[in-house]
C-alpha cells in the first residue's frame, strides 16, 4: 500500500472514530446531543434533566399567554392520556395553536419543561386527507 493512501486512510479513520466518540460520551452537559423522550416517559420521571426534546400535541384551551408580556406563554403538550406543562418565552411560530403538533426542547424539572426551542410541524391543511375541503 502506498504511504500516501495509508496516511489518508489513517486520518479519515481517526476523525470518524472521534466523531463517533463525541456523539456517544455520557455527559449531561455535553451540548452535542439531546435525547428525545415520549411524554409518558417524562411524566414518570422525578429527577431533573438538563436537556430534553419532546414531541406532542398542544392540549386545547391550555395555552395561557401573559397579558402584560405576550412573549411569555405556558401550555400543555399531550400524547394519548399523558400530558406535561411547558413554559416558553419568545416569539412563537405562526402555526402555534390548539392541537398543533409541536417539538419542544429545553430543561426538565419538577414536571415542567422550560423550553428554549419551540417548533411546530406543518399544518394538516396541506397534507394528507381531504377533511378541510369545502363540501356541498
Amino acid at each position: 500500500m502506498n504511504k500516501i493512501y495509508t496516511s489518508l486512510i489513517l486520518v479519515f479513520t481517526l476523525i470518524v472514530v472521534w466523531t463517533i466518540y463525541l456523539t456517544n460520551v455520557e455527559n449531561d452537559t455535553n451540548s452535542l446531543t439531546v435525547r428525545y423522550y415520549t411524554i409518558e416517559e417524562l411524566s414518570t420521571k422525578e429527577a431533573s434533566i438538563t436537556k430534553v426534546k419532546v414531541g406532542g400535541l398542544i392540549k386545547p384551551d391550555s395555552i395561557i399567554i401573559n397579558d402584560i408580556d405576550q412573549l411569555e406563554v405556558s401550555f400543555y403538550v399531550y400524547q394519548g392520556s399523558d400530558s406535561l406543562k411547558v413554559y416558553y418565552y419568545g416569539i412563537r411560530p405562526d402555526l402555534f395553536k390548539d392541537n398543533a403538533e409541536v417539538v419542544v426542547a429545553g430543561a426538565f424539572d419538577d414536571n415542567l419543561i422550560i423550553a428554549t426551542e419551540l417548533q411546530t410541524k406543518c399544518a394538516s391543511r396541506y397534507e394528507g386527507d381531504l377533511k378541510n375541503i369545502e363540501k356541498i
Binding site: 463525541l22 456523539t23 451540548s31 452535542l32 446531543t33 439531546v34 435525547r35 428525545y36 426534546k53
Partner: peptide, 8 residues
C-alpha cells in the same frame, strides 16, 4: 432516540 443539534 438521540438527536444531534446544529452544534454538532
Amino acid at each position: 432516540k438521540i438527536y444531534v443539534g446544529a452544534t454538532y
